[in-house]
Simulated scan of single mutants.
Amino acid sequence: MAKIYQKETNVKDYSKDFLLQFYRTMIKIRKFDEGLIQLIQDGKVSGFYHSGIGSEGLSAGSITHNLREDDYIYYNHRGCNQKIAKGVPLSKLYGDFMGTIEGTTKGLGAGIVHSADPSRGVMGQAGTIGSQLGICVGTAFSSKFKGTDQVTVVYFGDGAASREPLHGSLNWAGLYKLPVIYICENNEYAISSHVSETHSVKEHIADWAEGYGIPNYVVDGNDVVLMHEAMKEAVERARKGEGPTFIEAKTFRHRGHFEGDPYDYVDANVLKEWKEKRDPIKNFQASLLEAGISTEDEIASIQEQVDVEIEKAIKKAEDAPMPSPERIFEGLFA
């Protein structure tokens, strides 16, 4: 059975700069998201967007202070959260959605989240849900083959976890003790289907990892510090050659599956509970203030700085030109 990850954490045990980096990352993720939603509403972005509002603590906690630039990540359906935490510039992501050459793809794939930044270890994503679960064992195997201590982290939702690629991936990683960390972002809903309707396991999705001999945890994904600690242990194991870890991070999305989804399949009281009492940013901010680690003015200053950063990023992406027709042939090898 999966183990509930429980560890006594106190914000006073960490440095102020260490904690504020978590806060800044979470604020940047949320404000990026809000800025993109506004661009969609203004008609400046085509295509679908799957908002990650409500799960910022999961990405910030797992990546910030834990992963190096040369570590690999495969993001999930709401992957802008992870890409921002890994250091992809905001203007690059806005450029991808606007289809300008400022984007990581320089104008290809406009209006969707499938971008990549290999220079920062962001390896992209194929079009089929859960396909990253097959690809991630490749980079993990390469690290082991080359003798480096790079780790691979693969993010996926509870919906992708119900598909067959997960099991093949876990078997391979467990068999060869690959340095890969599986993070299942369990927000309870695959589009409009509740996790209880799509999984045979009735307790935890992480229970499946047990059958492949892979250490596994169930973590409160909205507790950024707890998420950091669980991930820290997993990264240390991977770097030492001790193999994979499976982390099921419990969270909840504040918005529908995509922008335009009425989200009427979720009980209003349940959504209110997650927004008001279990919001990762609101709760972490409160803990910083209560512990005297930060002040209201410092919190406001960080938010203002990020607002300026968002504004500049949008302008840079918007001012960049659209790609020329020749762009479609770049990177074409057949």
Rank of each mutant, 00 (worst) to 15 (best):
N10K: 12
Y49W: 13
E164D: 13
F333R: 10
L178K: 06
R120E: 05
S200H: 13
G168A: 13
V137C: 09
G211K: 07
Y176M: 11
L226H: 03
E34K: 14
N186E: 09
F329V: 10
I310Q: 04
H167P: 10
N10I: 06
R30L: 00
L36R: 05
E69N: 13
E296K: 15
Q150V: 09
F141Q: 11
G121M: 04
R237P: 01
L288F: 05
M227D: 01
S287Y: 06
K16Y: 08
A286G: 07
A300Q: 10
D267M: 08
L288K: 01
H114R: 13
R30Y: 03
E304P: 08
T295M: 00
A190G: 12
G243W: 01
N66M: 02
I27M: 13
F22S: 08
I247Y: 02
I314A: 01
R30G: 03
G109W: 05
K83D: 09
V180M: 02
E34C: 10
G168H: 15
M26A: 06
F22L: 08
V308D: 12
T251K: 04
I37W: 09
V224I: 09
K250M: 14
L36D: 03
S143F: 03
S143Q: 04
S196Y: 13
A230Q: 05
N187H: 02
Q132C: 08
K202Q: 12
Y263L: 15
I4T: 11
E242W: 09
G35E: 06
A300W: 01
I247K: 03
H114A: 09
E276V: 13
C136W: 00
R239E: 04
K28M: 13
H194I: 05
E185D: 14
G57D: 04
K3H: 13
H167T: 09
G260R: 07
T64D: 03
I302G: 01
G221S: 07
S287I: 11
S59V: 04
E304K: 15
P89L: 02
Y14N: 06
Q285A: 14
Q125I: 13
S46W: 07
F97K: 10
